[in-house]
């Protein structure tokens, strides 16, 4: 179990991580969601002992990444956002090297990486620098797992990866979870939230919500109307200035509209838009998803 308590980190005057407290349960797939610059990487780097927090306390199964960094490094596997293996060594040499520096062998923990490694094994004599993006990712994951870590820390593993590979990657994570490995993964993609057991929404160094994806959505508590018309851009600007508008933003083909009070319904929105000369108006009820929650939470905080 991982406990992060009131942890902060400043770079100059910028609060990269601002008084963050979260808990990650044993065997959980935990998602850290937030846009670029939210402080996700900084938080993860404090968890895996790469940087020192300015304040607060982090415990990984009772180990402190500051005081007990030796033991912490033994139990975590870290896959940074940027590919950082030896490009001039082959797949096999990289894996073998990371196994040996952790005092283990490929054979010993082969069962853990088998499903992933088998996909790249035919190319094991190829230098890591000459691999495709997806293969690099699989190799990096194999290297992070080779010492059988209790905690796997993944920093934006799916950024810049195509949709199919992303899907595949999440399936790999689900499979790893069944092997009892606790996983913390950061991502800027809101749609990946539903694949996590629990998520934390982070922005400007702060955590705005931390719960299961379903509970986060359930806590939204407002009605969203999906609005569509011929001239969507004019519709957006018109709705933004309407006195009954709480928030409106584009989301897919519809504009998501949130009213200031519950009296505003489909009819009154239609009436307002018609009065401004809009045509082909289509209004539907929308179930909020994580992205709506995120926009709402970051706006109100």
């Amino acid at each position: 179990m991982i406990t992060i308590q009131n942890t902060s980190k400043k770079y100059g005057t910028v609060k990269a991580v601002d008084d963050v407290s979260i808990q990650v349960h044993e065997g959980e797939l935990f998602g850290l969601l937030g846009p670029d610059g939210a402080g996700k990487t900084t938080l993860l780097r404090m968890v895996n002992s790469l940087i020192l927090p300015d304040a607060g306390n982090i415990q990984l199964w009772g180990l402190d990444p500051v005081a007990d960094y030796r033991q912490v490094r033994q139990i975590i596997g870290y896959m940074p956002g940027k590919f950082s293996l030896y490009t001039d060594l082959t797949i096999e040499e990289n894996l073998n090297f990371f196994a040996t520096v952790f005092g283990t062998t490929i054979a010993e923990n082969y069962h853990l990486i088998k499903d992933i490694y088998q996909q790249i094994e035919p190319f094991k004599h190829r230098p890591a620098g000459k691999l495709s993006g997806g293969m690099k990712q699989k190799l990096a994951l194999s290297c992070a797992l080779i010492h059988k870590p209790k905690l796997l820390v993944l920093d934006e593993p799916t950024t810049g990866v195509d949709a199919v590979s992303r899907q595949e990657f999440w399936e790999m994570l689900q499979a790893l979870k069944t092997k009892g490995i606790t996983i913390i993964v950061s991502t800027p993609y809101m749609d990946e939230a539903r694949l996590c057991d629990r998520v934390a929404l982070m922005q400007d160094g702060q955590i705005h919500a931390c719960d299961t994806p379903a509970n986060v959505v359930a806590g939204f508590g407002k009605t969203i109307l999906g609005v569509k018309m011929t001239n969507v851009y004019k519709g957006l600007t018109d709705l933004r200035v309407w006195k009954h508008t709480d928030n409106v933003y584009p989301c897919g083909e519809y504009l998501h509209f949130i009213a200031t009070d519950s009296h505003v319904d489909v009819a009154s929105v239609t009436q307002y838009l018609v009065s401004l000369g809009h045509q082909n108006i289509d209004i539907v009820n929308v179930n909020p998803d994580i992205e709506d929650c995120f926009i709402e939470l970051t706006r109100t905080h």
């Binding site: 940074p80 940027k82 950082s84 490009t87 990371f98 520096v101 952790f102 290297c143």
Partner: peptide
């Protein structure tokens, strides 16, 4: 530059 130094930093080396 490549980032391997950081990767090495999270090992017990």
């Amino acid at each position: 530059e490549v980032g391997t130094a950081e990767q090495m930093n999270v090992t017990p080396v």
